[in-house]
C-alpha cells in the first residue's frame, strides 16, 4: 500500500483526503471540500483518540513514514492544514 516518496503536493492532498474519508466514512466529494482550516481532532466528535491513532497508523503505511510520539501535537491534529503540512514535512524534510 506504500506509495511513492516523490508524491507531489496535489497527490499528497488527494491521498490524505481519501484517508480521512475512509476514517470518517465520507464520500470522496465531501472530503474534497476539506480546506486548511477544516477542524479535525477536537472538532469532529467521531474523531476520538482511537480513530486518530488509526488514522496516523494508516498514514504511516500509505505514505511510508514513521510518526514518533513527539510528532503528535495539538497543532498537527487540529486542522486539515496542520495534518497536511506535517505529512509534507515528513515526506520532504529539507
Amino acid at each position: 500500500m506504500t506509495i511513492s516518496h516523490d508524491l507531489d503536493e496535489a497527490g499528497l492532498d488527494r491521498e490524505l483526503k481519501g484517508l480521512i474519508a475512509d476514517v470518517l466514512g465520507l464520500d470522496p466529494a465531501q472530503a474534497e471540500a476539506f480546506g486548511p482550516e477544516s477542524g479535525l481532532f477536537g472538532h469532529l466528535p467521531e474523531l476520538d483518540s482511537m480513530a486518530v491513532a488509526g488514522l496516523l497508523t494508516e498514514m504511516e503505511d500509505r505514505l511510508g513514514i514513521v510518526i514518533e510520539d513527539d510528532d503528535v501535537d495539538g497543532e498537527m491534529l487540529e486542522t486539515y492544514g496542520g495534518l497536511l503540512a506535517f505529512a509534507k514535512a515528513k515526506l520532504d524534510p529539507r
Binding site: 481532532f41 483518540s49 491534529l77
Partner: peptide
C-alpha cells in the same frame, strides 16, 4: 502500536 498511540493521544 495503534492502541498505544490512542492511549498517548488521549
Amino acid at each position: 502500536r495503534g492502541m498505544i498511540r490512542a492511549r498517548t493521544i488521549a
